[in-house]
């Protein structure tokens, strides 16, 4: 069976922009083909899957077509570990005090997508479904924004719980580049592995540019001992958007600030926070403290 739609209708149905629908079609996230009259067609089962993903009820009922199999295989039975061996039990504020009211789910902007739902996460934690939680991608699609927590009448520490679950995912199964970034940072001093020489060359070059553009006499201060402020850098800037570093430099120029950048371990973004890696987090912070001591600075500027 075929589901036919116009982009504008589907956009309305899912609450996104028409462009988003077009991009999803382009990227294959929506497996649809262009049909006649600026309409698209996709398999009804794909449409149903899409509805399931975003927690929507299909707009039109399925008629005819294939019969539902008489005996649907349910998921295998789950063993609950409510108290014994439950890794989330020691701190009652992570899950145990939850009233199951669902306020958190109403507050969450991504609730319903792929079955994600903060209340469900909290309840699963209370019931000891540790493995299921550690293996789900929900905890990585959640942005740890704490909107749910702010709404919760019981002050359940939902974000701490989610971070704890993240920390239990085997490191080689952390999605995306954030764990790789942590390893890079530990091994090479910054999340994107930018070599020291390249970095220093870039700083000098950009400093000269800024001097020419609007700040006569400017040069980038690297490893200046006794500077008032040590400035850390988000490695995406030297990597991809180097000119963006000049805004702060221009402000320092205007204020006559005494500041410096360290030639090593200058990374200011600590992905251990989001990947749930406390050891790495501490090591990376420790290096910044070492820089503060080495360069004898009074203050530290974070990248944001």
């Amino acid at each position: 069976m075929i589901y036919e739609f116009r982009v504008i209708d589907l956009a309305e149905e899912f609450g996104v922009h028409r462009n988003t629908i077009r991009n999803w079609i382009k990227s294959g996230a929506i497996p649809a083909k262009e049909g006649p009259g600026r309409r698209y067609i996709m398999d009804w089962s794909d449409y149903q899957r899409l509805c399931e993903k975003f927690g929507k009820t299909p707009r039109m009922p399925r008629t005819g077509g294939m019969q539902k199999p008489a005996q649907e295989q349910g998921p295998p039975p789950i063993k609950l570990k409510a108290v014994e061996g439950n890794k989330f039990y020691p701190d009652a504020t992570w899950a145990d005090i939850c009233l199951t009211c669902g306020t958190c789910a109403s507050a969450c902007p991504i609730a319903g997508v792929d079955g994600l739902d903060p209340r469900k996460i909290v309840r699963m934690a209370a019931l000891g479904l540790t493995d299921e939680l550690v293996n789900t991608d929900w905890i990585w699609k959640c942005t740890m924004c704490a909107k749910c927590e702010e709404a919760c009448p019981m002050d359940v520490k939902i974000v701490q719980l989610i971070r704890k679950i993240r920390s239990m995912r085997p490191r080689d199964q952390v999605p995306g580049p954030i764990h790789k970034g942590v390893v890079n940072c530990l091994e090479r001093g910054n999340n994107l592995g930018i070599p020291k020489d390249d970095f220093l060359f870039l700083l000098e070059d950009l400093g000269n540019e800024l001097a020419e553009e609007c700040c006569p006499g400017f040069s980038t201060p690297v490893d200046v001992r006794g500077a008032r402020i040590l400035v850390t850098v988000n490695s995406k800037e030297p990597f991809a958007e180097p000119d963006d570093m000049k805004w702060w430099w221009k402000i320092f120029y205007a204020t006559g600030e005494s500041w410096t950048i360290s030639s090593e371990n200058w990374e200011g973004v600590n992905w251990g926070l989001f990947s749930g890696d406390d050891e790495a987090l501490k090591t990376i912070v420790g290096r910044i403290v070492d820089n503060m001591k080495r360069l004898n600075c009074e203050g530290l500027l974070l990248p944001e």
């Binding site: 899912f14 991009n23 996230a29 991504i110 792929d114 942005t143 954030i178 990947s275």
Partner: peptide
């Protein structure tokens, strides 16, 4: 409301979800 890219989500391989968020 969160922009939709926090907690590392900007770098995660879940773009569809991020845009929806």
């Amino acid at each position: 409301y969160c922009c939709g890219a926090g907690g590392g989500a900007w770098a995660m391989p879940f773009k569809t979800e991020r845009v929806f968020y």
